[in-house]
Amino acid sequence: MTSTRNAPAGTLPRDDSTRVVLRPRYEGSNICTWIGFKHVNYLVEEAVLDHLRQRGFPAGELYERYGICTDITEIDTRMWTAYHIDDVAVATVRQAEGPGQELRFVVEMIADRGKPVRTVTAKVGVTLRKDVRGFPAEPVPAELAALVVDRIGTPQEPVAASGDDVIAQLTENRNAFGWSWRVPYPYCHFTERLQMSGYLRLMEEAVDLFLADRGVSIHTLLSEQNWIPVVPSSSITMLDEVGMEEEIHTVFTVENVFKRLTYTARMDCYVRRDGVLRKTATGTITHGYAVIENRRDWSQVDFDDRLHGALLGDGATS
C-alpha cells in the first residue's frame, strides 16, 4: 500500500477532493422508481470508501494487512431531490476538519437533469478501529497511526431501568414507540460488530413499525390516499459498539411536528450490559408526505387530520 502524499501522523492528504460515479441499487427502488433514504446513504458510504481507496487506503487492504477496521460511525445527510433507479450519481468527497481521532468528510452529489442538479450533501465520520481477534498484522502506516482506536465510541452513562419491561420504561410519558430485537449476522461486519448500514435498516424499520402502531401504516396511506413518506434529511451517530446477537432496545420518539408539513423523530438505541442500559446510537429523521401523481412524479401534501393526530400521539386534529 502506498499513500498519495507524505502526511504527518494522524492526517490524510487534504489538498484535493475525489470524484466517483455511482448508481443507486435496485433494491432501494421501493415506491415507483424513487430511491429511499437508506440507499441514498449507501451511495454516500460508497463515495467515502472510494475516496479512501483513491487516497491509497482501501478498506479491504487496511483490514487484511494491518488489522484496521474502517467503520463509518456518523452520517448526516440532506436529500435535496429524489434519485431514480436509472440515475447516475456523481459524488465529490473532501476531507474536513474535526475534533478527536475520527476522520471527517463532506460529500456532495449531483445528478444530470439536462444540467447538473444538486441531489445530496452529507457529513460523514469514519473511525479506524483496531481488530483485536489476534491474527498477525503489519505495522500500521505512519499516516494512520494516531487515528487508530481500540474501541468505537465510549461507554455511555447508564440509563435507569429495572425489570423486564424495558421498552415501557423508555417510552413512558413520551410520544414514542419502541421494541427490542436481536442483532442478526447480516447487519454486522468485520466478523462481529453492527455496522452503520445496519443502523440505517433499523431506522427504516423503526419508521415502518411506528406508523403501523399509530394506525397510519405506509401500506394504509398508499392504498387509501396514494400517499408516501418522503425524507429530506437523516442522521445517525454511533456512541458505542454493539456485537452480533446482542439485544437492542430501540425507541423512536416524535420530537417536532412542523405545522402540517414535516415531522422529525429521534431514534435511540440501548443495550443492557452488567445489569444497566447504555445508549449505543442516536439519530434523527425528518419526513414529509407526498401524493403519487404518476409513475415518475409526486408532489408534497399537508398532513390531514388523521395523520396529524397520529403523529402527535393524542388524536389531535389541529
Score class of each variant (00 low, 15 high):
M1Q: 09
T2K: 14
N6D: 14
A7V: 15
A9R: 15
L12E: 03
P13G: 04
Y26I: 13
N41T: 06
Y42H: 14
V44D: 00
D50C: 06
L52A: 02
R55H: 12
G56F: 05
Y63I: 03
I72K: 10
I72N: 04
T73L: 05
D76A: 07
W80N: 10
T81H: 10
A91K: 04
T92Y: 08
V93N: 04
Q95S: 13
E97I: 03
G100M: 13
Q101W: 06
Q101M: 14
L103S: 04
I110F: 11
T119C: 15
V120F: 03
A122P: 02
A122D: 00
K123N: 15
K123Q: 15
L128S: 01
V132W: 11
P136Q: 01
E138T: 07
V140K: 00
L144V: 01
G153P: 00
P155L: 11
V159A: 09
V159R: 12
V159Y: 05
A160I: 09
A161S: 08
A161P: 03
D164F: 05
I167E: 07
Q169K: 04
R174F: 04
F177N: 01
Y187L: 15
L200D: 00
M203V: 05
A206M: 13
F210H: 15
L211D: 06
L211W: 07
S217Q: 07
I218G: 00
I218D: 07
T220Y: 10
S223A: 10
Q225T: 09
I228R: 02
P232D: 01
S233I: 03
I248V: 15
F252D: 01
N256K: 12
K259Q: 14
C269H: 08
C269V: 02
Y270A: 00
V271W: 02
R272C: 00
G275W: 02
V276F: 08
L277N: 00
R278N: 10
T282E: 15
I285F: 06
I285W: 02
A290N: 04
N294E: 06
R295D: 14
D297M: 12
D297V: 10
Q300V: 08
V301K: 04
D302Q: 15
D302F: 13
F303D: 00
L307V: 05
L312V: 03
D314W: 05
